[in-house]
Design a protein around this nucleic acid. Structure first.
Length: 793
DNA sequence: TGTAACGTGCTT
DNA sequence: AAGCACGTTACA
């Protein structure tokens, strides 16, 4: 808390929006934090939100007011977007000041809006001063950027190891005891904490109000510390302590980042000549070096962008990388490699855009033309993380940001540095994390690390489709994405770590406006507006889209449009990596094919819980140990579930999967009442060793089932058909397509039973050994008359 | 006033 | 680096 108030006022803690999917969800009752809650029988010490309910768009508290005029946001009073913006409260990620853009004397247009977090930007003042989040990082700090999201958005959905748990309990008890008893450590701690606090307060108080006011909204400016300004009492107006520690933290982070980068570079085939230094974090580190890219003229985004670009370049993801990548591609297949690279870069760009691009002047800034690849500096992992984090900074980062730098020691406090205080600290951890995952962090969730099969299977991926047609975007991005991921995985080979380690915030792509025009070098806009380009993109294949994403930031963002990625096919990608997961989340596909992958349970759970809009899920050929993740998820929207050939899936498993959660607490949610997948209309169980018992489950828990695939289920008999088509079965009316192909135990007895289905349109009875050859075929009868034909047959 | 939970320090 | 604990903030 202390950190919170720095500049312009106390930094306001953000609170949940209450509108996003996460906020609307009910507690899962199963995650680590839920289990801690008293309502779920826990001790209630952790006081953290359910992992599934972590808001993806935390907002400023209702009580937040403009630093300048003291009034709340008034965007509701106007209609136009521009006015809304002017009258809404915007919180600067750098100085933390909350202000109405209209209350700023300087052009509000110079601020860089963070699309990912509501009411979040880098205010014009900070910008003008060239304080990018990064810059601050160095000295001043602050930044909420790092997103601390991480810390909170950990992927702890799964219960911590029991061992640990018990330990923790004991530990907890012990701790408590310690505290209660005048034990040394405990008391000492407390004392220390108290003292620190006290110090902080003392320092802060004097300034707090004054300083902020005195300095004006941007107290941050004043000096490095400015950012911190006066708000909080906690943050010492005195630059000293916190700043010191921040400074230190930053340095550490920087170092770590460098190391990470190094690693990346080494490992990745495409290492480019980069300077290590800057890489650290995206953000904060002061980057030394010269930018690999030419500085862009655009004022606004120039500073930060440049920095970012530079860093990217340093990471080796710059255009030069292409060549590298290509050579590498040779090994695995040029196309794939290329696509992969493209995706990666694109992603990076994407992220970057979000981060920096918000200014919307991207291309202009770039020396290269909008079409030139150079313009978009591909990101290194770290960058992404950094960037995104910077955007997200506010509350979230803070949350993540746990800094554990030693920096808090008194010594540090005593040293004074001119640096400013930062509210948020990022931890190296974050950065590191970010770097690993590169996916944007948009959704606020941590990504489970992949099992790490490092290599990848070849991607079959070609495009399935382009769909250019019907839906604006239905393309399967499969290979690309997967490859992308792969690449990243390759690039940053991290030693096998516990799955739980990854914590990366991934927010869904912002719904916010993207640049509507394509800026050209000349400063003018391309004649074709975004909408037109999107129409074009809809007709491109995945590889083509990926290529487009590398053209320029604007294209990168446009190509990231969810409509272009409604279907994501990662099937047969043996390695599902965190970046892949991140990419998926960001695209929020409607259809996801994870068939024949080695996705882990944790990964799947993580994904499903963050894809609440998912309508189709294919986990065919995966192992039950992974698919069982679905038992701990709720997918009320799911319409198609493909469980074909899931290894080791038995009747009991299916029961567990389809039945509503037994947990009482959750039964409260209506969604669970009819079973987890009560709205599933198409279920594929081909190749499973299930018995007739499953038919009862289907009748009971999948009342809306219309398409059922029991092909190759050798234990299925006529009994199942009987159950499915009995008078009390809702499926009798709903079934339209049934496949019993290869069900060797099905006899002709099933035919009269099937006739009871009023809506049946087709029955696949091929390869049913006990049926006469003339019956053993695919029967299609779209109309009642046709059904009669079947009957006659 | 009570509950939820954010943000951060401290421990492991 | 991960996780725990808890003061404090936000809000009903």
């Amino acid at each position: 808390m202390s950190g919170s108030k720095v500049l312009g006022g106390a930094r306001r803690r953000r609170t949940r929006c209450r509108r996003c999917q996460a906020c609307l969800r009910t507690e899962c009752g199963e995650c680590h934090f839920c289990k801690d809650m008293k309502k779920f029988g826990g001790p209630g010490r952790m006081k953290q939100s359910c992992l599934l309910r972590q808001c993806t768009a935390p907002v400023l508290p209702h009580t937040a007011v403009c630093f300048a005029c003291g009034e709340a946001g008034k965007e509701d009073t106007v209609e136009s977007e521009e006015e809304k913006f002017s009258l809404s409260l915007m919180e600067c990620t750098i100085c933390n000041e909350i202000i109405h853009p209209s209350c700023l004397k300087m052009g509000k247009s110079e601020g860089i809006i963070n699309d990912e977090i509501p009411n979040c930007w880098e205010c014009p003042k900070c910008h003008k001063e060239g304080k990018t989040s990064k810059d601050q990082g160095d000295g001043l700090g602050k930044r909420r950027m790092d997103n601390g999201e991480v810390s909170r958005w950990k992927l702890t959905d799964e219960p911590p190891p029991s061992k640990k748990k018990s330990l923790s309990l004991e530990d907890g008890a012990r701790r408590k005891k310690d505290k209660e008893l005048p034990q040394e450590s405990g008391s000492r701690k407390k004392i220390k904490a108290a003292r620190d606090k006290h110090l902080k307060k003392q320092k802060a108080k004097p300034n707090s109000s004054d300083s902020s006011e005195a300095n004006g909204p941007n107290s941050s400016l004043g000096g490095g510390h400015g950012s911190a300004g006066g708000s909080g009492a906690a943050q010492p107006s005195t630059p000293s302590q916190d700043q010191r520690s921040h400074h230190r933290e930053k340095l550490e982070r920087f170092k770590r980042m460098c190391q990470l980068l190094e690693r990346v570079r080494d490992s990745s085939s495409s290492s480019s000549s980069s300077s290590e230094s800057g890489s650290e974090s995206d953000s904060d580190s002061p980057s030394p070096a010269a930018a690999s890219e030419p500085p862009s003229p655009a004022a606004v985004y120039s500073g930060s962008m440049r920095e970012r670009n530079r860093r990217l370049a340093e990471l080796g993801f710059s255009a030069s990388e292409d060549s590298d990548g290509e050579s590498a591609a040779a090994d695995r297949g040029e196309v794939n490699a290329r696509v992969r690279r493209a995706v990666v870069d694109a992603e990076a760009d994407d992220d970057e855009d979000r981060a920096g691009d918000r200014g919307h002047r991207v291309s202009a800034a770039d020396p290269s033309s909008p079409l030139s690849a150079t313009q978009l500096p591909p990101f290194g992992h770290g960058h992404l993380a950094g960037l995104s984090s910077s955007k997200r900074t506010n509350g979230q980062d803070a949350r993540n940001g746990r800094t554990r730098v030693a920096g808090r020691e008194l010594q540090e406090k005593e040293n004074s540095s001119s640096s400013t205080v930062t509210n948020h600290r990022h931890t190296a951890v974050k950065t590191a994390r970010g770097s690993r995952m590169r996916g944007g962090s948009r959704q606020g969730q941590s990504i489970p690390s992949s099992k790490s099969t490092g290599t990848a299977a070849a991607g079959s991926g070609t495009a399935n489709g382009n769909s250019g047609t019907s839906n604006p975007g239905s393309m399967s991005l499969a290979p690309h994405r997967s490859q992308l991921v792969k690449r990243s995985a390759v690039a940053v080979p991290s030693p096998p770590r516990p799955l739980q380690m990854e914590r990366h915030l991934v927010r869904p792509p912002p719904a916010c406006p993207e640049p509507h025009c394509l800026p050209l070098d000349s400063g003018a806009s391309h004649v074709l507006p975004r909408d037109v380009w999107l129409h074009v993109f809809q007709h491109l294949s995945q590889p083509q889209l990926c290529v487009c994403m590398r053209v320029c930031r604007t294209w990168s963002r446009w190509c990231c449009d969810k409509r272009l990625w409604t279907q994501i096919d990662l099937s047969r990608q043996r390695s599902i990596t965190p970046p892949m997961l991140s990419s998926i989340i960001r695209r929020q596909p409607v259809s996801l094919n994870l068939g024949y992958t080695n996705i882990s349970k944790k990964q799947l759970m993580w994904l499903i819980n963050r894809l609440q809009g998912l309508l189709e899920l294919n986990v065919a050929g995966c192992s039950w140990s992974s698919v069982s993740a679905l038992c701990q998820s709720v997918c009320p929207c799911l319409r198609l579930l493909d469980l074909s050939w899931v290894e080791d899936l038995k009747d009991s498993h299916l029961r567990e999967l389809l039945a509503p959660p037994s947990n009482d607490t959750r039964s409260a949610h209506g969604e669970n009442r009819g079973g987890r997948f009560q709205n599933v209309a198409e279920l594929r169980l081909a190749g499973l060793e299930v018995t007739d018992a499953v038919s009862r489950l289907l009748v009971r828990y999948l009342p809306h089932l219309s398409k059922l695939d029991l092909g190759q289920c050798c234990h299925i008999t006529d009994q199942s058909i009987h159950t499915l088509t009995s008078a009390i079965s809702p499926l009798r009316e709903s079934l339209t397509h049934v496949s019993l192909a290869g069900c060797v135990k099905v006899t002709e007895q099933c035919l009269p039973l099937l006739r009871r289905c009023a809506s049946l349109q087709s029955v696949d009875l091929r390869s049913c050994g006990l049926l006469a050859p003339d019956v053993c075929q695919l029967h299609c009868f779209p109309s009642a008359e046709d059904r009669l034909l079947l009957k006659n047959s």
